[in-house]
Write a protein that binds this DNA or RNA. Structure first.
Lengths: 237, 237
DNA sequence: TCTCGTATTGAACAGTTGTTTAATAAACTA
DNA sequence: TAGTTTATTAAACAACTGTTCAATACGAGA
């Protein structure tokens, strides 16, 4: 057993990250963290002031770890995906932590997600330039949707695991067959889409018309509380 | 105000659903539910046995409500999406409830998700037959991935709202501009994909090779490799 | 060596959790 | 009508929560 050169304070934070990753934020208590870190509950508070302080430190540490990793690694245009961050992270429970934490809206997590999306937009722009990705009229919106789907799948990891046999928080130790099954579908969708051309055109036309209908003059952008006429209209009946 | 003809027991369940949808599972306590339902904490337990029993009843009720809605509504092939269920639900906080609950893995929620995915596969098959969707070698996997992305976005609703100004739990009350911005990207991705053809082919080839590489001499398992020709592929497993 | 600040602990505290109990009110049953 | 469930409440309960406190051990600097 190698000597643990981490400070006690760092060990407590790591214990908290493991607790949150393996269980959930809700039942990560002072005493459980203390037990994993093999210290007394009081010491946890002594070092981090409060449970909220500990949680903040975890978020900050995870965000810093991702930032550091992105700086050290050369990210190609094909690695626009959040999963590449998780796969190569030196923090073992990075994926599980993110999965547990994406549900609630702590400011630190919000900023982390914002940064990931912003980075994805950059990477995807590189991808367009290098010919990996097709161009788009709205790069930001596309990068945001793709990132949200990616992170959303991570937040749904329990269901992904049950339905497809793939553990997104631990990409290394999946069965090859299951992972191939999953990735093939992802690449198929991201490669060709799923809608036929005519239907896709029609859907987008419907959206544009709904906007033009409810906003005949170009005034303010926030016109809430309108009766939804064609909102969300995927229906072709 | 119309007289409330619901039974007290039903009112308590609805109060719990509202609590979970507006806050979270973790801080939906007996006393908060009792307060919303305007009853005493003890009565909540009297009717549902325990907090877990109440939660089970909520899950069951939501699942039944979705099932009922699907039976009553004619679902077209284009409505493979989960969002159509939420948009038209008579349970107001359906979307918020699902968003709050998708993170943890209660058996009832797992079954609900499984059902939604299975239905999506059916609807998408109809979509292929009607010419709305392009065919696929692996309908089950494609339906699963699409459904998980859809539900995942719902689970990420706080981030969706912050980043794109769209509230997926309340599709009716979004600004038209924001919703159009969101839907246009979704339809663009689902219509054309984002990867160029060469890259998509290469990625899928990489996946196939990785499978073949790690399982070179296993005759029995290598038969699970994806093959575009065979009928149905592994969709029946 | 003594001192002083930090690290660490175990016990205690106040607050909240889900649940139980005894009592009362209401509603059905005969 | 009387009797027996059921509905409902207020209060109490034990188990847990985060946090505080006093006491002790420890390590660096004089």
């Amino acid at each position: 057993m190698t000597t643990d050169d981490r400070t006690t304070k760092a060990r407590i934070r790591d214990a908290a990250i493991i607790c949150i990753a393996h269980n959930s934020v809700a039942d990560t208590t002072v005493r459980k963290v203390a037990s994993v870190a093999e210290v007394s509950p009081g010491l946890v508070i002594h070092h981090y002031g409060s449970m909220e302080g500990l949680r903040d430190s975890c978020d900050t540490y995870i965000a810093a770890s991702i930032r550091k990793q992105k700086q050290e690694t050369i990210m190609s245009g094909a690695n626009f995906d959040v999963m590449s961050v998780i796969r190569d992270s030196e923090v073992g429970s990075m994926g599980g932590y993110l999965a547990s934490v994406l549900g609630d809206d702590s400011p630190a997590v919000a900023k982390l997600v914002d940064d990931l999306v912003a980075d994805a937009e950059d990477y995807m722009e590189q991808g367009v330039e290098s010919g990996s990705l097709v161009p788009t009229d709205n790069p930001r919106a596309r990068a945001t949707v793709i990132s949200l789907w990616s992170l959303g799948a991570l937040a749904m990891n329990k269901h992904v695991k049950r339905l497809m046999g793939v553990d997104l928080t631990n990409l290394h130790q999946n069965s090859d067959a299951a992972l191939a099954n999953y990735l093939n579908s992802v690449y198929e969708i991201l490669g060709n889409g799923i809608l036929t051309e005519s239907v896709a055109d029609q859907l987008r036309k419907t959206v544009s018309e709904a906007v033009a209908e409810n906003q005949p003059d170009s005034q303010t952008t926030s016109s809430k509380q309108e009766k939804s006429s064609g909102a969300g209209g995927e229906g072709t009946s």
